[in-house]
Design a protein around this nucleic acid. Structure first.
Lengths: 305, 305
DNA sequence: GATATTTCGTGAGTAATATTCACAGAAAAC
DNA sequence: GTTTTCTGTGAATATTACTCACGAAATATC
C-alpha cells in the first residue's frame, strides 16, 4: 500500500463535490439545486470524471440515475476525502480561534423578531462560522461598516456596485392579540386603535390598497420602531400592521392573530453583498440557511398555530 | 462528528495537489517542477487555500518555506484524501480490467535496446497503466495508427498539428567490443571495419564532422537496421556508430566500449503527442518516467562501467 | 392515448478561472 | 559587492467551467 513513489492517478478534484451530491440525491438536477449550479454543470462534471477514469459512474436510465459499482467505490473514497478535509478545516479554525466571522447588517425589527431567535439554530448547525449581527437600517455601505452582507427591505435605491439577491417577498397585515376574538369590536378595524411605526408610516395605507379594505381607524398611535408597535399589539393596545417575518413566531404560538390575512406589500427582502453570494462560502451557507428558515413564509402563508 | 446535515467547508480542491507537493518539497519551485507548472501557479494555489481558510499554511522565511501547525493539519487530511481517491481509482481500474492503456510508437532500435529493457521497471511503478509498445519508424500519424504518443528522432518534418516535446539531444560515437583494446589495430578507426545501418546511412559522416575525425574505414558493411550493426559490433565484427541510448546498457556492463567518445548529432529525441503531454495524466506519467530514466544520458556522458 | 412535465445530454457562447510571463524584493551564497 | 535562488505579484493570456437554450426520452396526468 505504499504509494510513496508512485504517481497518483486522481480524478478531477474540483468535480468531486458535484459527483458526491449527484450520487447522494441520485439526481443531477437535485445536486444542481444544492450546489446552486445548473444540471448541465453537474452533467459535465460527472462526465469529466468518467472520461478521466474511463469508467461509467452512473447508470442513466429513464429519468433517474444511480451509481455503477465503480461509482459506489469512488463515492466511498470521495465522502471520506471530503469529510476528512472538512474536519481538518474545522479543526484548524477551532484551534486557531480564527473561526471565520460573517458580519450581518440587518434591519433592527427583523433582527429582533425574526433573525435573532433563529441564530441559535444556525450556530448549532455551523459551529465553525460565527455571525456578527449588527442591527442597522436604511441605505447600506458594506465597506464603510465592515459588513459582509446586509439584509434589507428593498424600498430604497441600492448602489449599483452591490450584488442584490432576492430573499422573499414581503407580506403584511393587521395583527392583534387573540383576545380580540372575544371583543368583536376590536376585530372590526373601524373600531380598532391603529398602531403605526414612524419607520414605515405608510404601512397601513399600503395594506388597505393591497387588500381592498376601506376601513378607517377609531384611533391611532405612533411608535418610533416597528417592534414597539408590535409589542403594543401583543399587549392589547391596538392593531398593528405586522410584516409577516416580524410576527411569524407570535402567530405560530398564538400570541398574535391576523384575522384579516396578509397581503403582499410589493417589496422584497433582499440580501446585499459585495460579490455574488455563491462566491464566498460563508455567505453561501448563511444564504442557504436563511432560505431554509424562510421556507413556508415566502408565499405569505400564515403559520399554523 | 456527524457531518451529515452540516454543510462542508472545504478548501479549494483543485489547489490541493499543489499544496501537497509544496509541503512535501518544502519549496514552491520544486513543487512547480514536479507538477510541470510555474512557481507562480503554486504560490497562487497555496494563497488561494490560505485565503479561503483565513489561515497561513506556510511560514515563508528566507528562501525556504515550511508548514505552520494549520498547514500540518491540512497536509495530513490532504494526503489521506488524495491517497484514498488514488486507491479508489486504482481499484476501479483493476476490478474493471479497464486499466488504461498507453499506446507508444517507438523507433524499433530504440525500443529494442533502450525502452523495452526498462519497461519492466515502469510496469512495477505504474501497475495501473499498461504500455502497448509498437515499434515503428519514420513519419508519424498518431490518429491513423491509434497511438497516444510516439518517440522519434526529430530528423524529419512533423505535422504542425502535433505537439512535440523535446526529450534529450542525441549523442553518438563509434563503439566496438572491449577486446579491441588488445588489438590496437581495431581501435584505430582507419584500420577498422565500419558498420553502417541503412536506416541512417550518414551516421558515420555526421560523427566525423562533429568530432573532427578524418579517418577512413579499412572496410565497410551495411545492415538493414541499427541493432544489427550494433549486434555485429558486440560480436567483434567491426566498429559501429552507436547512438548513446542504443548502446547505453552495453557500455554500462562493458559489453561495448566507446574509445573515441560521443559527439552530439544535432538531432533531438522527441515525444510526439496530439495534445500537450501535461493534459493527459497517462502521458504525463510516461513522460516523467522517460525523463527520469534518461537522466545522466542527456548531456552525452558515458555510463561508468 | 395525447399532452405536459421532468430529467439528462449537448453545442455554442460567455463568464470566470488558472496559468504564465516578466519583474521585484529579500536573503543567502559566492 | 555581485550573483544566485527563492517567493510574491500585476498584467496578459490561455483555458476551463458554467450557463443558456434546445432536444430526446421516459414518466406522470388527465
Amino acid at each position: 500500500m505504499s504509494n510513496i513513489h508512485r504517481k497518483r492517478s486522481l480524478p478531477p478534484l474540483a468535480a468531486l463535490p458535484a459527483f458526491e451530491a449527484a450520487a447522494r440525491h441520485q439526481s443531477f438536477s437535485r445536486a444542481a439545486e444544492e450546489l446552486h449550479l445548473t444540471h448541465g454543470a453537474i452533467s459535465r462534471a460527472v462526465a469529466q470524471i468518467e472520461e478521466r477514469l474511463g469508467v461509467d459512474l452512473f447508470v442513466r436510465r429513464n429519468r433517474r440515475v444511480w451509481l455503477t459499482p465503480a461509482g459506489e467505490r469512488l463515492l466511498k473514497a470521495t465522502v471520506l476525502a471530503l469529510d476528512g478535509l472538512d474536519s481538518a478545516v474545522e479543526e484548524i479554525h477551532r484551534h486557531d480561534g480564527t473561526s471565520p466571522i460573517l458580519s450581518v447588517s440587518c434591519e433592527p425589527s427583523l433582527a429582533m423578531r425574526w433573525l435573532m431567535p433563529r441564530l441559535g439554530a444556525f450556530r448549532d448547525a455551523n459551529p465553525d462560522l460565527n455571525i456578527d449581527l449588527r442591527p442597522a437600517g436604511g441605505p447600506v455601505d458594506l465597506l464603510a461598516e465592515g459588513c459582509d452582507v446586509a439584509i434589507r427591505r428593498a424600498d430604497f435605491g441600492i448602489a449599483e456596485d452591490y450584488d442584490v439577491t432576492r430573499l422573499w417577498p414581503e407580506f403584511a397585515g393587521p395583527v392583534c392579540d387573540p383576545q380580540c376574538w372575544k371583543t368583536i369590536l376590536a376585530c372590526d378595524l373601524s373600531n380598532a386603535r391603529w398602531l403605526h411605526s414612524r419607520t414605515r408610516p405608510d404601512a397601513w395605507e399600503v395594506w388597505k390598497r393591497a387588500s381592498g379594505c376601506e376601513a378607517n381607524p377609531a384611533s391611532e398611535q405612533y411608535f418610533d420602531h416597528f417592534f414597539f408597535a408590535l409589542q403594543a399589539a401583543v399587549n392589547r393596545l391596538g392593531t398593528a400592521i405586522g410584516p409577516l417575518p416580524l410576527v411569524y413566531d407570535d402567530l405560530a404560538v398564538g400570541r398574535l392573530i391576523a384575522p384579516h390575512g396578509m397581503a403582499p406589500t410589493g417589496y422584497d427582502y433582499v440580501l446585499i453583498t459585495l460579490d455574488r453570494p455563491g462566491r464566498d462560502p460563508r455567505i453561501l451557507r448563511f444564504f442557504d440557511w436563511l432560505m431554509g428558515e424562510a421556507k413556508g413564509m415566502e408565499d405569505g402563508m400564515l403559520p399554523s398555530v
